[in-house]
């Protein structure tokens, strides 16, 4: 495997990791707020905060890792994305900042403050929407390079069916992934009332997810026919993804094996995400940056890969420790610790 392929694969894995953990987190914030205003908070909010409290910072690092790594492996992305994403990027930063800090304020400081929870819930849906702009513009047609540098074409972006379908997909996926996870977590905690409630959410959000995926595909065929063509050639990958979707929903209806149901969700997104990523190549930003044109020099690439492997050796045991303490420690989940 060439360095650039290793690099992009590693980054894509981390973006996938962020997609999963952040969706759980973002969606949970929304559900917590929703439960609060529909006066169901006594049922699920305890559960949500026990899971979220120890991990939100780790979630954020996944994101930092992705964008720092992207600029490291592909310095050209700093120039093109940096120039064009000033506004959407800044909005995303502001939302992330509001969310992270208000979460801390709410959970360590003034408990159950509705205003804080509103910030926390609303930003959870807006962040995926603003971050998805980066993926949208990577398809090409939304930026132009002039003598005065690269500029984003806001008119194109805001009037494009593709960009809106991506936003829609991002939001519903967040709610779907999160609800599916909370079902599993409630089942582990053996919390029946919470389980019934989040299960309702999970089933409700499953059909919009699959519909949004289809519309995004159709919009892609308009926006970037070549990418669409490459995706069609990888039809089997997307097929596997749909199969896992059906398995997840089936298990959810059965009311058993919630753990497996959530694993099926993870595979559903894994295949869809890697299918999307693989068909996106060779472009990182169509048509300005390709995998080979954008990659950094060899010595940096080697150094980054070495550091990455060393970092994983440090990270994986620590993550396992964290998960055993908070996610898989039955007493903790049940609220006994």
């Amino acid at each position: 495997m060439s360095y650039e392929l290793i690099g992009i694969t590693v980054l894509w894995f981390f973006l996938y990791g962020y997609l999963i953990v952040a969706s759980i987190d973002f969606g949970a914030g929304f559900f917590a707020y929703y439960a609060k205003i529909t006066k169901k908070d006594h049922i699920i909010n305890q559960l949500i905060s026990r899971y979220l409290s120890p991990v939100w910072e780790v979630t954020n690092v996944f994101f930092v890792f992705f964008f720092v790594g992207l600029v490291g492996f592909f310095p050209d992305t700093a120039y093109y994305y940096g120039q064009s994403l000033l506004i959407p990027g800044s909005i995303a930063i502001v939302l992330i900042a509001i969310r992270g800090s208000f979460y801390a304020f709410e959970s360590y400081g003034s408990k159950d403050n509705t205003v804080y929870m509103f910030f926390y819930g609303a930003t959870g849906l807006l962040i995926p929407a603003s971050l998805s702009t980066a993926l949208t513009i990577s398809e090409g047609g939304y930026i132009e390079e002039t003598s005065n540098g690269v500029q984003l074409l806001y008119g194109e972006l805001l009037s494009s069916p593709y960009s809106w379908s991506v936003v829609f997909l991002a939001i519903v996926s967040v709610l779907y992934i999160s609800a599916m996870f909370l079902v599993y977590y409630a089942a582990r905690a053996n919390d029946q009332p919470a389980l019934q409630l989040v299960k309702k959410y999970a089933l409700f959000w499953s059909s919009p997810t699959i519909i949004a995926s289809l519309t995004t595909f159709i919009a892609l065929s308009q926006q970037n026919p070549e990418h669409f063509q490459r995706a069609i050639e990888l039809w089997w990958v997307f097929g596997i993804s749909v199969a896992f979707f059906m398995a997840a929903v089936f298990l959810m209806y059965q009311g058993k094996y919630y753990g497996w149901a959530f694993i099926a969700v993870m595979f559903q997104f894994f295949f869809a995400f890697f299918g999307y990523g693989a068909s996106h190549l060779p472009y990182i930003l169509n048509p300005y940056i390709t995998l080979t044109s954008g990659v950094t020099n060899e010595s940096m690439a080697v150094a980054l890969i070495v550091v990455f492997i060393a970092g994983l050796c440090l990270l994986i045991p620590s993550l396992v420790m964290l998960m055993r303490m908070f996610l898989f420690d039955a007493d903790y989940v049940k609220g006994k610790k």
């Binding site: 720092v68 490291g72 492996f73 980054l304 990270l315």
Partner: peptide, 12 residues
């Protein structure tokens, strides 16, 4: 890019 990248591991 190397120390910036290493920093993310320190954050983690």
């Amino acid at each position: 890019a190397l120390p910036l990248f290493m920093e993310t591991f320190a954050f983690f």
